[in-house]
Design a binder for these strands. Structure first.
Lengths: 219, 219
DNA sequence: CTAATAGTGTCTTTTAGACAATATCGG
DNA sequence: CCGATATTGTCTAAAAGACACTATTAG
């Protein structure tokens, strides 16, 4: 038997609220007087664990994350950090959560807008950027956005989230037309209130056969 | 410092030829009299290696693979195999090669059509299936097919490869129309021979903004 | 009354996709 | 001469995308 690289895993936990995407970071233990160093929540993976079980355990204990807070999990990629003495190998995940702010545990935990981040290691920045790219791409051809929105929502709300994630404005009427012909939403009977509430027909991810593109620019 | 899971990596090496996709497998050392067990080329990853360096080293020594035989490399995903005593974590890659048949090394090596495989472990089957799905998907919106074809080729050749990978027949005229408007191919000046030879404009992967779909069925 | 937001339909342009005949080369 | 292969254009249907006004509600 050989001595293997060290294995760790980390996670990009995203939430959406107020037309912004937020990511959860944890503060590394820093020498007092030093500025805190924020990073993606990380855990070492031990011999009898998997990267996922280790991650979930750490999230539960350090940031009080409930299993039910997370609606969507996806593996991003595995990165490797060689050093003369040992390689560290890190499996990264993307988690999506509805706007809940969970309890903070003993460690420092912060939820930051993704466009107003504290300083991060370049590795963490890369992973986060990749996560946002994946989310962006999947938003165009799947119902992944449902895991960031409340169970029911108005169409304007949905459109705003779409625009935030994809960084493009879309025309309201075309957007709604697209949605109706996709047939993944159902209107929820509502007591005479203006913004009609909708919900997704399926709780699981739906992949569309054609990408969900729209207007390039709308000033 | 903790005792980490075991780390391995393996690879799906694909080639295209004769309107078929081929995958390279290696025969595990088997007790004599036992039927050989084929598997994806695999390597353990040691403390000071990365999964990629370990993999390349093993491929070079066991199947005589030259670095230049491979035109495209992509990480697929990382899978984990828990056991009571230790987890094994395996990073999988997809390699694409032009139709070269490389030297075989000391171990037994086989190149099999992907639809006529010997028996494989279910884990290997999953990885291979995923690799084929990725290739299929990327063929629809990128120039990835270039890494499976000779440097220059005829349009019919290209179309056949496309049909093999995506499992669908396409109309010749529509296929060519699409290609010309994509503008990624250039005709190579050829000495009066019938099948005009083309080559891709860029040696790197080109991602198309719109997917490359076509006729659903053509009997 | 006013301002903000929700809701709705048409027309134009572009793209997808179905479809058939002719020229050339090799045996 | 015959058969296989390469090449080329048009027409139709569907989808993308641009665009403006009315109804309701909250202040």
């Amino acid at each position: 038997m050989q001595s293997s690289p060290l294995v760790t895993s980390n996670v990009v936990i995203l939430q959406y609220s107020d037309q912004k995407l937020y990511v959860t970071l944890s503060a590394a233990a820093a020498p007092s007087g030093t500025k805190v160093q924020w990073r993606l929540p990380t855990t070492p993976v031990m011999q009898t664990q998997t990267s996922l079980t280790a991650l979930e355990l750490t999230l539960r204990t350090t940031i009080g994350l409930q299993d039910s807070d997370i609606n969507y999990r996806e593996q991003l990629y595995t990165s490797e950090y060689p050093s003369p003495t040992h390689t560290t190998i890190c499996v990264s995940y993307l988690y999506l959560s509805r706007g809940t702010r969970w309890f903070k545990g003993t460690q420092q935990v912060g939820v930051f807008p993704v466009d107003k981040l504290p300083s991060l290691s370049s590795a963490d920045r890369l992973i986060l950027r990749y996560a946002l790219e994946r989310l962006h791409a999947k938003t165009l051809y799947s119902s992944i956005i449902q895991f960031l929105l409340p169970r029911t929502f108005g169409l304007t709300e949905l459109q705003q989230a779409f625009e935030t994630i994809t960084h493009q404005k879309v025309d309201r009427r075309n957007f709604r037309k697209k949605l109706t012909q996709l047939n993944t939403l159902s209107a929820k009977p509502q007591k005479g209130q203006s913004p009609t509430q909708y919900q997704f027909n399926h709780t699981a991810l739906t992949v569309y056969s054609r990408p969900f593109l729209d207007t390039k620019k709308t000033p």
